[in-house]
């Protein structure tokens, strides 16, 4: 029987196979995560038929990632006191603000971006309203609000809105396509002018996949060196082990 097939070496061979299988499997898993993430991003829902908001999410749900950009409809009441202006928003090359007023839907408030304005001011909206618009996830680049007391916020982050609104908030917001009187007098914000979701997290998955396969290759390399060592040691049985 060849030396390396003897039962006393089986454990080491098995260890290599387990390490290799784990590295290949984890790499494939990361590759799938990368593909799934890209597919989800590539899905353009903005032209899909509108769904009632209650079918997509409730006020307590975490943001449903598969519905990013989904057109939704809902009815509620404007909360004019919660109006905020999101800074640094461009429209046709001009810098201005998004005008956001929350709409109370049942027990929770949905932030609604009504439109764009060159200055942080807009006509008040009040009363009941039927909104049609695109569902968006909270932004979060970590921009800091240099003056939390005023009604201008640096980005459309739900955590920043919470401090200004006296109701539970949905974990997302809606860019209005039509919100009755709420959208009149304001330039329309199209879904195209909404920042894209970052793809870096998916790139990370791809890099992790390669990394696992490199680890697998390294396991084979170590195993091969080990085999050679065993053969060399067996070829010189008279050599005392070096201290």
């Amino acid at each position: 029987m060849p030396l390396l097939l003897r039962p006393r070496y089986w454990g080491a061979h098995l260890l290599m196979l387990v390490a290799l299988a784990a590295a290949i499997g984890l790499g494939i898993w990361q590759l799938h995560a990368w593909q799934a993430g890209r597919d989800a991003d590539a899905r353009d829902l903005s032209t899909a038929a509108a769904l009632p908001l209650s079918k997509v999410m409730s006020g307590d749900d975490p943001f449903p990632g598969q519905y990013l950009g989904q057109p939704v409809t809902f009815e509620g009441t404007w909360l004019p006191k919660g109006t905020l202006y999101v800074a640094d928003r461009d429209l046709h090359g001009k810098r201005g603000y998004w005008v956001m007023t929350p709409v109370l839907v049942g027990d929770s408030a949905m932030p609604v971006v009504r439109g764009w304005s060159p200055r942080p001011e807009a006509p008040q909206s009040s009363g009941s309203v039927a909104v049609r618009g695109y569902l968006q996830a909270s932004e979060g680049t970590g921009a800091t609000d240099d003056d939390p007391e005023d009604d201008v916020i640096p980005e459309m982050r739900i955590a920043s809105v919470v401090e200004h609104v006296d109701a539970d908030l949905y974990s997302g917001y809606v860019v209005a396509k039509d919100a009755g009187s709420g959208t009149t007098g304001l330039a329309k914000v199209s879904p195209e002018s909404v920042p894209e979701v970052s793809t870096t997290s998916h790139l990370r998955n791809l890099l992790y996949a390669f990394q696992w396969w490199i680890f697998g290759g390294f396991a084979i390399y170590i195993w091969q060196r080990w085999c050679r060592d065993q053969l060399e040691a067996a070829a010189e049985p008279a050599q005392p082990v070096a201290g």
Binding site: S138, G140, G142, T144, R157, I158, A159
Partner: peptide, 8 residues
């Protein structure tokens, strides 16, 4: 979730 500490 959502606090700046958690984001960091």
């Amino acid at each position: 979730d959502g606090t700046s500490l958690q984001t960091t």
